[in-house]
């Protein structure tokens, strides 16, 4: 089982566990909160004012929110309301544990994606809401525009006394923001049947030069035939790795996501006589000069990509 499967199995174990049990809303349904809501929404429905006022049905979740101060027994200070799950009174640790597990897996951001509500009867000022929340499901790892993470779906039943007054299914995405991912991978070399041998050599940390078996002339980059005599047959010579900077440029602009400008790109003349392109490392970009002696080394940029680079010799 790999790490991702292991995490998913751990997450799935939370399905069916309670997130809140017989929790009590922080405030009873009340006119001031209804009025503030209606002001914010621009809702002038007369059903929400006057002696027979009811609460806007879409306020359902509001009566379960923990607010800024959180609830008793918690450190409070700026704690998020955890998407509507009140921390009041009897409260299962399962939801906190689930979120902590996701946080530890790098899924530190949260966004609400779905809200499904049923309104069984209107709520009226004075109603004391209690609620039970269960963790309904935790998804496999999903990649979204925002980042990669897991959807967590909870279902809350709201009651006034013994009567079920509403249900509320809520889905959040706990995700690792795409922005915080590492630098994008460096572009891959284009490997084809004519140059595959060169890249196989690089994987073994060997710098291979093609040699024409007809006329013995060395060539680079790799080609299907000899430019000197036209012969299609060839073998390889392992380069010593010694060279000098034949020419170079310093890249300032345009920036490219996988690169960190400014950086020097040199055309290096190998001791064997052919020339190769590559980054010059081990010296500031503005100290690269024509004639600078360099030596090949192999740098792993990621799990799949190793490239020859040129380190200043001596």
């Amino acid at each position: 089982m790999d790490r991702e499967e292991h995490l998913t199995a751990q997450l799935k174990a939370f399905e069916g566990r309670p997130a809140a049990t017989r929790a009590t809303g922080k405030d009873p349904v009340n006119l001031p909160m209804i009025r503030h809501w209606c002001e914010a929404m621009g809702d002038t429905n007369p059903a929400y004012t006057g002696p027979d006022a009811v609460a806007p049905p879409t306020m359902l979740q509001v009566w379960t929110m923990a607010g800024l101060s959180g609830h008793q027994g918690l450190s409070g200070q700026g704690r998020s309301p955890h998407q509507g799950l009140s921390r009041h009174q009897v409260r299962s640790a399962a939801y906190d544990d689930l979120l902590a597990l996701l946080d530890a897996a790098g899924c530190t951001s949260v966004v609400a994606t779905d809200c499904e509500q049923e309104y069984l009867r209107p709520l009226r000022p004075g109603d004391e809401v209690t609620f039970d929340t269960v963790i309904e499901s935790v998804s496999d790892r999903k990649t979204t525009k925002l980042g990669t993470g897991h959807f967590v779906t909870t279902r809350t039943d709201l009651r006034v006394g013994p009567d079920l007054v509403g249900t509320h299914r809520f889905r959040i995405l706990k995700y690792a923001p795409a922005r915080t991912r590492k630098t994008p991978p460096r572009p891959r070399p284009v490997v084809n049947r004519d140059n595959a041998g060169f890249w196989e050599g690089v994987r073994r940390h060997e710098l291979l030069i093609q040699r024409c078996t007809g006329c013995e002339v060395l060539r680079h980059p790799w080609l299907p035939g000899c430019n000197a005599c036209g012969c299609p047959d060839w073998d390889t010579v392992r380069a010593s790795g010694e060279g000098t900077v034949y020419s170079y440029v310093v890249m300032h602009h345009p920036p490219f996501p996988a690169f960190d400008p400014p950086y020097a790109v040199a055309l290096v003349e190998l001791a064997e006589g052919v020339r190769m392109l590559g980054n010059v490392v081990g010296v500031p970009y503005d100290k690269v000069r024509i004639g600078l002696p360099v030596r090949a080394e192999f740098r792993a940029y990621d799990d799949e990509l190793t490239l020859p680079v040129w380190r200043v010799a001596g």
């Binding site: 429905n45 007369p46 806007p56 809200c115 309104y119």
Partner: peptide, 18 residues
């Protein structure tokens, strides 16, 4: 919710919203 009850009037009752 406001959009719906504005249209259907103050006597309308929202039963569910997803």
């Amino acid at each position: 919710g406001r959009y719906l009850t504005d249209h259907f009037g103050p006597a309308s009752v929202l039963r569910s919203l997803s």
